[in-house]
Amino acid sequence: MLEGKFEEASLLKKIVEAMKDCVSSCNFNCTENGISVQAVDNSRVLLISLLIEKDTFEEYRCDRNITLGVGLGSLSKIIGNGANSDYLTISADDDADKLNIIFEDKVKDKISEYNLKLLDIDADLLDVGPMDTDATITLPSADFAKICKDMKVLSESLQIIVTKDSALFQSVGDIGTGNIVIRPKTDIDHPEESVTISLDKPIDLSFGSKYLSDIIKATSLSQKVTIKLTDQSPGVFEYKLPSGYLRFYLAPKFDE
């Protein structure tokens, strides 16, 4: 039996909104430690790795490891029915063919209950393992979202060049070019506004703008995003949860 109670429905809403345009369905793997997901988009370019640790939940129990195949569009429709501030409890029996979803209004005496039909999903898993990182950039997630949106008007590729003291985001397209440079900054009064860049090796990587547009749908999950880049390797874009993370692994573009 799985049972997990979120203090606020808004957290699961944000997670599902961040994932559903990239993958239509995925397996939620539930263990005593929490819930994890690995899913790859249809073009096999963008991988989502989600970990919701049990401490994220107000209450959590999972007696036996279970896998729940979930259609994210359908889940999004159902959890859209609850208010952001509602308690949200998900539960499933060990051999379940449905996920039970309950919203509890914290003010009114109102409980809403839904069942979501589960899917049988047969997906290959990729072994992403621990990766070496040549450069790590941490910046406000809203700033990163704006950079991606602004650069997308110019080109279907975004080049990220990291040197010791700056990160350059560059787009070169038919109508013109754009450059945005960010440098490390410590803001003591507003730590969420700080920018850090750590570098072992200079980086020059290009990524598809349309995939970055999918990644920045996670912006509301965290005030910060951490970007880990390694030469000739996929980029990792991580949004921290209160306890856990939503990570995107994005395959780069290479010169022919």
Binding site: R44, D124, L126, G208, Y249, A251, P252, K253, E256
Partner: peptide
Amino acid sequence: FKKQKILSDFFPTK
């Protein structure tokens, strides 16, 4: 021209 790589170019299938 840049060619889009796919994830299995980097990560083995489990």
